[in-house]
């Protein structure tokens, strides 16, 4: 395991938890703290209030812009991010950006990377990005192909766990029991009844690509560290960022980061890095919460917390997922895990 640089910083009032910190060395502050950040997505976009994806995308791309000295091209799958940033006649993007289709962003990015390579522009780097629908479902084939060829593309999935753009329908990243427009909270088995969702980071790792990481809008330093690290590498790289959706999750617009934090601190969304298929670094849980604490702040799980009583069994299923992650990834130190 390599040392995570954002964890080696000594105590400085807020350490590296806040976006900036006037007490920290400039080089240890986030890109987001800088007045010179590129604002790859600028103001005026039409994302909902408190949109985690808008935030996550700016975090990631600004960081990549810094890492590449602005020599960056983004390819975008169809979805919320594409729609809310580029309705004619206005775009929010400030970097070269291409949208083709819902399911082909990884392949389009392969083509862009190939073009720059053949033209000798090795300095220009390519990011492909999309939501969980375009990543885990419709674009999965293209993504796997891009991985397998080890094309020089960083693919970023902004995972909000359903098809939000079309009105909150289930995707293969939707967690169990979540209410969506196609997994209604009615009947014998309310909410999503399918499995535990497709774990794309692990699938990406199975391709033995140079770099796979998970990240969250709740941990900016970690996110920027991972994007920067990914941009320092060549070949196919994958970063999976959890981006809560206030609309789809039924969480408050000001709770986006808090909900993302609860996902991490419960163990339901482990933060880790893997290189060539092996986990190399794990972010430990800092202040553990129970899965229930995460579930109950989201209306999509409201049917687990009905007035007549909590659905203890289903909550326990989710808790077991969290416990499994904690064990599998070693999210807690031995003594605190007891």
């Amino acid at each position: 395991m390599t040392e995570h640089p954002s964890q080696s910083v000594k105590f400085y009032q807020t350490g590296t938890h806040t976006v900036g910190n006037r007490l920290l060395d400039e080089t240890k502050r986030t890109v987001q703290a800088s007045v010179d950040r590129s604002n790859a997505i600028t103001s005026g976009h039409r994302a909902c209030q408190g949109c985690g994806e808008a935030l996550g995308a700016r975090y990631a791309l600004d960081s990549a812009m810094r890492a590449t000295d602005g020599q960056l091209v983004a390819v975008n799958a169809t979805g919320c991010l594409e729609v809310f940033t580029t309705p004619y006649p206005e775009t929010s993007w400030q970097l070269p950006w291409l949208h083709s289709l819902f399911g082909n962003a990884p392949a389009v990015a392969t083509g862009v990377a190939a073009a720059f390579r053949v033209k000798g522009r090795k300095d220009v780097r390519v990011i492909a990005q999309g939501g969980d629908g375009s990543t885990t479902d419709i674009g999965f084939g293209c993504l796997s192909g891009m991985f397998e060829r080890n094309d020089d593309v960083l693919y970023i999935c902004y995972d909000n766990e359903a098809y939000m753009n079309t009105g909150v329908q289930r995707s293969s990243a939707t967690p169990p029991f979540a209410r969506t427009a196609t997994t209604q909270a009615i009947g014998e088995a309310p909410g999503n009844v399918f499995g535990t969702g497709k774990n794309l980071p692990l699938i990406a790792m199975a391709h033995n690509i140079p770099y796979v990481a998970t990240a969250s809008v709740a941990d900016l330093h970690d996110l920027e560290y991972k994007v920067t690290k990914a941009m320092g590498m060549r070949g196919a790289r994958y970063i999976h960022i959890l981006v809560p959706c206030p609309l789809g999750w039924g969480s408050a617009s000001d709770a986006t980061i808090q909900v993302a934090r609860l996902a991490i601190e419960s163990g339901l969304f482990p933060l880790f890095e893997a290189e060539h298929g092996e986990v190399t670094q794990v972010s430990k849980i800092r202040r553990r919460v129970m899965a229930e604490d995460y579930l109950k702040v989201q209306k999509r799980f409201a049917h687990l917390f009905r007035k007549e009583g909590k659905d203890v069994d289903k909550i326990a299923v989710v808790q077991r997922m969290a416990d499994h992650n904690i064990k599998r990834f070693g999210l807690m130190d031995e003594e605190t895990a007891q």
Binding site: V19, N21, T30, Q32
Partner: peptide, 19 residues
């Protein structure tokens, strides 16, 4: 105390950092 959180977490870049 100028931790930059507001500046960073705004999904709409609607916070201006004055230095």
């Amino acid at each position: 105390f100028e931790c930059d959180n507001c500046y960073g977490v705004c999904p709409d870049n609607a916070v201006k950092k004055l230095g």
